[in-house]
């Protein structure tokens, strides 16, 4: 996904992406990204929490309008731990 994002930016399309692993993002170098604390496969948090999903998208819209440095990563404060698989 990082490569697709880089190519889109190079082609003139602004992007905002999400990530949940700061170490991986350090070498992927996404042009503009939000960092969340959610587990793999649930980048916008728990299923069914529409309000939180909406808030994260609002954060993304804000990031688009305020980030000015290539490679900016903004960490979001939301927390949710997925239940252990039954």
């Amino acid at each position: 996904m990082g490569l697709i994002q880089r190519m889109a930016e190079a082609a003139g399309i602004p992007t905002i992406s999400m990530g949940n692993a700061a170490d991986r993002m350090a070498y992927i170098k996404p042009p503009r990204a939000l960092l969340v604390k959610f587990a793999r496969g649930s980048m916008l948090g728990e299923p069914g929490n529409s309000q939180r999903q909406r808030r994260i998208i609002m954060d993304a819209l804000s990031a688009l309008q305020t980030m000015t440095e290539p490679g900016t990563i903004r960490e979001l404060p939301y927390r949710w731990k997925r239940p252990d698989p039954s």
């Binding site: 602004p14 905002i16 990530g19 980048m43």
Partner: peptide, 8 residues
């Protein structure tokens, strides 16, 4: 105009 990208 803008892409929102979600990896897993």
């Amino acid at each position: 105009d803008v892409l929102f990208m979600v990896p897993v």
